[in-house]
Design a protein around this nucleic acid. Sequence first.
RNA 1: GCCGGAGUGGCGGAAUUGGCAUACGCGAUCGACUCAAAAUCGAUUGCCCUUGCGGGCUUGUGGGUUCGAGUCCCACCUCCGGCACCA
Length: 829
Amino acid sequence: MSGYDPKSIEAKWQQVWAEEKTWEVANPGQPGFDDSKPKSYVLEMLPYPSGEPHVGHLKCYAVGDAIAHFRRRHGFEVIHPMGYDAFGLPAENNAIKTGEPPREATERSIESFRRQFREWGISIDWSRELGTHTPEYYRWTQWIFLRLFERGLAYREEAPVQWCPKDATVLANEQVVDGRCERCGTPVEQRKLEQWFFKITDYAERLLADFDLLESWPEHVITMQRNWIGRSEGAEVVFRCEELDLDFPVFTTRPDTLFGATFFVLAPEHPELERLVAGTPAEEAVREYVNRVARESAEERGAEDREKTGVPLGRSVVNPVNGEEIPMFVADYVLMEYGTGAIMAVPGHDTRDYEFAKAFDLPIRRVIEGEDPEAARDDEGLPYPGDGPMTGSGRFDGRGNREAYAEIVEWLKAERRGEASVNYRLRDWLVSRQRYWGAPIPVVYCEKCGIVPVPDDRLPVELPEVDDYAPQGRSPLAAAEEWVVTECPKCGGTARRETDTMDTFVDSSWYFIRYLDPRNEEAAWDKTAAVHWLPVDQYIGGVEHAILHLMYARFFTKALADIGELSVQEPFANLFAQGMITRDGAKMSKSKGNTVSPAEYVERYGADTARTYVCFMGPPERGGDWSDEGVEGVNRFLSRLWRLCGEVEGRDATEIDAGAVSGDARELLAKSHWAIDKVTRDFQRGFQFNTAIAAVMELVNEAYRVKDALYGGPEGVAVVRFATATAASLIHPFAPHLAAEVWERLNGGRVWEQLWPQADSTLLSGDTVTLVVQVNGKLRDRIEAAVDAPEEELLRLARESEKVGKHLDGKQVVKEIVVPGKLVNLVVR
RNA sequence: GCCGGAGUGGCGGAAUUGGCAUACGCGAUCGACUCAAAAUCGAUUGCCCUUGCGGGCUUGUGGGUUCGAGUCCCACCUCCGGCACCA
């Protein structure tokens, strides 16, 4: 047996797994379905195929594969599929630049991903592979769109949208980061367009409530989603403009400050603005202001420390609680998208209103007393956002604002001037994209019938071929005139197809269901298969998808459950969010030139080394900095294991009689069982792979320490052999090829078919233990004692110690603490 | 500003229930093997004082609880991530 040669070992086992289709599993009712085993659905987020896989992919699939192997070896029937999120902008931008059709670049990239996943030895059920860009897949994406449309969950509306001038497309709110396009960084503009939306806001409450149904999700991911949904409780209060006979409802979380409202502000996009100022002296100034705001980017408008601007309307509304007339303004710090697009301004108790009042010299009124009674008398300490007794609020004076809150809301309701209300930050999901490389929206526009959904039996609406992928403010699909012009499914007349495509987040919101029945041509999935496999038991992916993808998939699952197509409310019972790998402390990027190519390391050290390294770098949920020396360290460890196998393979060994072994043999045997126990617990304790791998390293180190002595007799050889096979078995989830080879050589058979080893508890602890002796809490000596030695015995041993004695001299022991199995602490004075 | 997470050797990190701080890996130093180098194997490696024996100090800072604190409590500092004119 020669040196560790990962290339030949890995090729050998990859061939076995491919030929024997080792990782394929059958659905209920299909031949080969094993109903004796409990199921486990282990899933990593599907990759977006662009170029080659990077280290982030390696980490994600290495982590997921370790979990899949661990579950299989605990007797689970594990479904572990793979696919490609293949629609999207990069392939299309490449097409615009080079003229290469997006399909070709995408297919080439998929081929590269597929080949590398095989070279990494990831245990994938390839029979379930899918690509979201194939008509066989997006047919059903369109089918789901139609189901949502039927339920009123997909609707079309003219709306101000975020428009990226560079990509010439509309973006979802979620894809706008700091006022810029998430993809290309161009400042985003506002436009008004007819767009398709999904009514995710209908599900806001359930998306919040059903966090309770999840088994284990990282707390910070739940928090991020909760903040994103942004639930606020408050009241809707109606302010009336008598002159024009118009009611203006506002949403406020602070109805207790109603008496402090001294002015009233509308968003620049407010639909009633025109009516309020038409033909008045304010008209021109207001129009100018509104136009100026409209030209500004979201970034400019949302800028920090921005001065408050606005224009008075020359109109007033009446405050319902005290009948006071307060002046109206338009100002860009009020957003049309949130609440009602209008606010009551309470400068005494709201920072933004305060700044506006200062800028426009408006009255500021205190209606809640602060903690400092001195400050309560004048403007000092304002704006005051906290709680306290009410003041200047008529009959509510003196009451705590929190107590009076409900009463005020009740009073408003009785007066029909308002009611309790809940608002969400969450907006409906804008899914229209004026782009080519996506799933066409399955709708036609007929002059007679209006919006007509394409009937199910005419799906898929296939993407036509086009010559020019560059968008010009409309979808490139619009240029395919012979495709656009079609017949109305309802009346048979001439109709035009929708030329927008769907956001790719739609494709990835249901792929985990399609895996369960990927070749079904009659339905999106077989319900029996879905009932059997769902939910995903363990989902693994980057934390960058903590909000969007995960929330969209949750929304789809709930909507599909409501429609009767699914029987689960939550798609992912357990979520593991991996941290990002950096290089030299910085995020990897091609422009920085600090990328790490997994293929290069697989070529040089083998897939087992690359996989084990990314799991060893640190806790997988945290990020880590890539280190070439670290990779070599892991490679050294695997080589040591390999050499151990070679040494022990050719030597005669007996059976192990666990009761009879002693000395070094006993220690190595005990270390083996300690490692089994440690690795098992690290897996169960949130995938602490770095410490699990460290434990196997310790086992191999221990074997090296004692092996030469143990090679003297067949019993000793047997123990080294056992330790080596155990190390192989424990490292198998991370280094499956090497583990398979070592196991086959030493024990015969296949390591992945072995049940996970169980630690022999009698070997986990010896007859004696080492205890620490402290004097005043400081470590002074160690003593050996029988496991079951009584406390008096331990104290006697401690006092007898020479080293301890020095610290007791001339002092009085005032207290003795004995923790059996751990320590003795003598307190002296 | 709000909401999360984290601060431990030269570096990545470990410490499971309040009980041996620094496991494992990297790096470094020394030795064995070698004509030599690489590879490999072995030893040492938190800091300070000490020839040695030994002693003192140490988990971002300052307090506290406790026989005993990296771990619990209070106050603060720094870094990272998310959200942000959301009424």
